[in-house]
Simulated scan of single mutants.
Amino acid sequence: MYDDYNEIITVGQLAELLQIGMNTAYKLINSGEIESFRIHNVHRIQRSAVTDYIIRKSTSCNRVKGES
């Protein structure tokens, strides 16, 4: 149960993980594309939400390529 706490990342870590800028990272979480929660006005993201986002994007890219 407590091992899951290591799976919570910051917006900065999200940006680093996806190799994107901070503005793009905030756009992804503010739009709901990547689920997050707030603690004292600071966003926190479960690593599994990032994995889900990557899988969704990978699937949609593969689907579009297959339709060409």
Rank of each mutant, 00 (worst) to 15 (best):
I9G: 11
R63H: 06
R47T: 06
Q46K: 15
T10H: 08
L28A: 10
A25K: 12
Y53I: 09
I29T: 14
T24M: 09
I29G: 05
S60C: 00
K65M: 03
E35S: 14
Q19A: 12
S60W: 02
Q46A: 13
S58V: 05
L14A: 06
T59C: 06
E33I: 04
E67V: 07
Y26I: 07
L28C: 05
D4E: 15
Y53A: 10
I29C: 03
N41A: 05
R38V: 06
E16M: 09
N62G: 03
S36A: 14
Q13L: 04
R47S: 09
Y26L: 11
E67Y: 08
M22A: 02
K57L: 00
A49W: 09
N23R: 15
E33N: 12
I39L: 10
I20A: 05
V64F: 05
Y26W: 13
E7P: 07
E67I: 10
K27M: 07
D52F: 02
R47C: 05
V50H: 08
K65V: 07
E16S: 11
S58P: 01
V64Q: 08
N30I: 03
H40I: 02
L28D: 05
H40D: 05
M1F: 10
R56E: 02
S36Y: 10
G21T: 01
E7I: 02
K57D: 01
C61K: 14
